[in-house]
């Protein structure tokens, strides 16, 4: 405050108060409000508060990838998913952001938090640009994690090998193998990542060990990935395991995946949602 100009306080005070919420030190800062940290843990807590389906019942979840710079579509996506019945959660297969900025993650969360079911994510390559990896860890949580729900273990891992310069350690195949080997309390397993092993951004030295780890786990029902912005379903390793890629938000489509039984049984339903009004 400039001394001797008392009236200034009436000008500056509202500006200061109004501005503090928008205070930003850098687009790459990793500081976010505490309520917007550890969203993976928050969403898992929310998921576990919902009774899982009985063992004989079907587990249903929404699968989509690459929300990136599609915020208008995210709002339409939320409206559409909220109209679905019997959905347990949403799986978002990476590339939450375009530029790896925390504000982008917050823009997305400010829309997806209106989902009636929790959403769970895995990190994508765009999410690792600049300070992105640190942002993801602070805002969402671990890069590799797993959770169990409805007798199913979901294993989510970072497969964005190119972002690390193909060091031979991403994805962490040993960690994946260990998570898949632990079958206690699970009837089936689903592996989720961003870059599929058939893509050139996946470390070529790890493709076969990765596929072998999945092949050695008979309870793996599906492999889900994003990155390519379109739906595909194939068995690239001719081992009976289906590798799916999901639509991006820009396609205004998503899949509802249903799992049941002990075998590799699943059902896919494509939902097209309307344009933003």
């Amino acid at each position: 405050m400039i001394p001797g100009v008392g009236g200034l306080r009436y000008v500056l005070l509202p500006l200061l108060l109004g501005g503090c919420a928008a205070l930003e030190f850098s687009p790459n800062q990793t500081w976010v409000p505490p309520a917007e940290r550890n969203l993976t843990a928050q969403n898992l807590t929310r998921l576990y508060q919902t009774p899982p389906p009985a063992p004989a019942d079907t587990l249903r979840f929404v699968f989509i990838g690459d929300s990136q710079r599609f915020y208008d579509e995210a709002e339409a996506f939320v409206r559409s998913v909220n109209q679905q019945r019997g959905i347990h959660f949403v799986l978002l297969a990476g590339d939450l952001t375009d530029f790896g900025l925390p504000r982008e993650m917050r823009w997305l969360h400010h829309r997806l938090r209106h989902l009636r079911v929790p959403y769970l994510t895995v990190i994508g390559n765009h999410d690792q640009v600049a300070n992105g990896r640190l942002n993801y860890q602070r805002i969402y949580g671990p890069l590799n994690y797993s959770f169990e729900y409805g007798g199913t273990r979901f294993v989510l891992l970072d497969t964005n090998s190119r972002e690390y310069g193909f060091p031979g350690t991403v994805p962490n195949v040993a960690w994946l193998r260990a998570r898949l080997a632990d079958t206690a309390g699970t009837r089936r397993q689903v592996v989720v990542c961003h870059v599929p092993p058939t893509d050139s951004d996946f470390d070529p030295r790890l493709v076969l060990p990765y596929a072998a780890a999945l092949r050695a786990s008979p309870r793996v029902v599906l492999h889900l990935a994003g990155h390519v912005h379109r739906f595909s379903a194939q068995q690239p390793f001719q081992d009976g395991l289906s590798y799916l890629t999901g639509y991006s938000f820009g396609k205004r489509r998503y899949q509802i995946v249903s799992l049941w039984g002990r075998q590799r049984q699943f059902h896919l339903e494509t939902v097209t949602y309307a344009d933003v009004r």
Partner: peptide
């Protein structure tokens, strides 16, 4: 605001201006 925020706003009419503006003093 900065170029990346402005680009994000350009393709998302429902991204509010208050979401892309930052404050300093």
């Amino acid at each position: 605001t900065n170029d990346l925020y402005a680009i994000s706003r350009a393709s998302n009419c429902r991204l509010r201006l208050t979401e892309i503006v930052v404050w300093g003093a």
